[in-house]
Amino acid sequence: MKKQSFKLAVVALLGVITLAGCSGGKSVATMKGGKITEDELYTELKKAPESSQLLTGMIVNKITDAAYGDKVDQKEVDKEFEKVQDQNGGKKPFEDLLKQNNLDVKTYKENIKSNLAFKEMLKAHLKITDADLKETWATYHPSVDAQIMVFDKKEDAEKALKDVNDGKDFTTVAKEVSKDEVSKKDGGKVTFDSTMATKPEGVLLPEQVKQEAYKLEDGKVSGIVESQNMQTGTDSFYIVKMVKNEKKGNDYKKYEKELKKITEETKMADPAFSQEVLGKELEKANVKIEDDQFKKILDPYLPKKEEKSDKKDDKKSDKKDDKKSDKKEETTESTK
């Protein structure tokens, strides 16, 4: 199969080479007997399925940068860049990674700016109502302080829980045996609410673990809570100690700021909302596709226009129907 694939690739390449000299544009490659021009390369690249997606992305970047780029602070771009850089081993390793992907620092920062401009575009279309806040409130729980231990095996969790119940310090046990490397060094301390955000960052807490934690009074320890690991798909076993549990009560107004932030983030992460906003912005920007091959690439994003029926035609149709019914009635009377 590998040899066959290689032969097909060579044949395809030879097919491209034979086109050399047929089109204009700057040369991309030269060889004995011909050359490959930018026009030829563009023609071949257009055939790739990814070309439509690439062009759509370029169009979106252009309209968001033009309309919302000035709302993006360069400090925010630099901050986001440094964050990604740190996550990838620091300055030198990250620059090497960029080179491997035919990118540089400047280009990557431009991509970050485009992404932030896209977020600004979504924000410009956000309208949060009291109904939205109340919907978020239904599943919201305020931030709580707790301690956790995580295990791969139930028997290890059972032993740790027995040690804690027998009087051993939860912090000490967590440091010694918990499998959660992010939280164990601080005795399993975590802060979390009903969103995905936690302190420290990187601690993964399944919903069922959170729900069990919310039931605990300050100082109380849960039983073993079994859950599927969100990263590996394997079973994990949690023990939670509540440090400070804030009850949410009945007044959502007290948490209006937090609820608004969560609601905004939820809406902005909704693909349907993003598509709706993008459709409006594409229409506003009056995007016109000049290349026939790509004429319809934006159709999935543009608002569906309802076909307006011609009122005059409707009236004519109604009159014709009335005449037909009258004739039927006359025919029926005559037969009687």
Rank of each mutant, 00 (worst) to 15 (best):
K2G: 13
Q4G: 10
Q4H: 14
A9R: 11
V10R: 06
L13M: 14
S23G: 12
K35V: 05
I36N: 04
Y42P: 07
Y42L: 15
T43S: 14
E44F: 15
K46Y: 08
P49Q: 03
S51K: 05
Q53Y: 13
I59E: 03
V60P: 05
V60I: 15
I63P: 00
A67W: 05
G69H: 02
K75I: 13
K79S: 15
Q85L: 13
Q87G: 14
V105A: 11
V105M: 06
K106E: 15
T107H: 03
K113L: 00
M121K: 01
K123F: 04
A124Q: 11
D130I: 00
D132C: 01
T136Y: 09
V144Q: 07
V144D: 06
A146R: 02
A146Y: 01
Q147I: 07
Q147L: 10
E155P: 05
A157D: 04
K159Y: 12
K162E: 11
V164N: 03
D169N: 11
V173W: 00
A174L: 08
K175P: 02
S178I: 02
K179F: 12
K189Y: 08
A197M: 09
T198I: 00
T198E: 00
K199A: 15
G202W: 03
P206D: 11
K210I: 04
K210P: 06
D218M: 08
E226K: 05
S227W: 08
N229I: 01
K244V: 05
N250L: 11
K253D: 15
K257P: 03
K257G: 09
I262P: 03
E265L: 14
D270R: 00
D270H: 01
P271F: 09
A272M: 10
K284D: 04
D292N: 10
D292S: 13
S309K: 15
D313N: 12
D314N: 12
D318Q: 14
D321W: 07
D322V: 06
K323R: 03
D326R: 14
K327S: 10
S334I: 10
S334P: 01
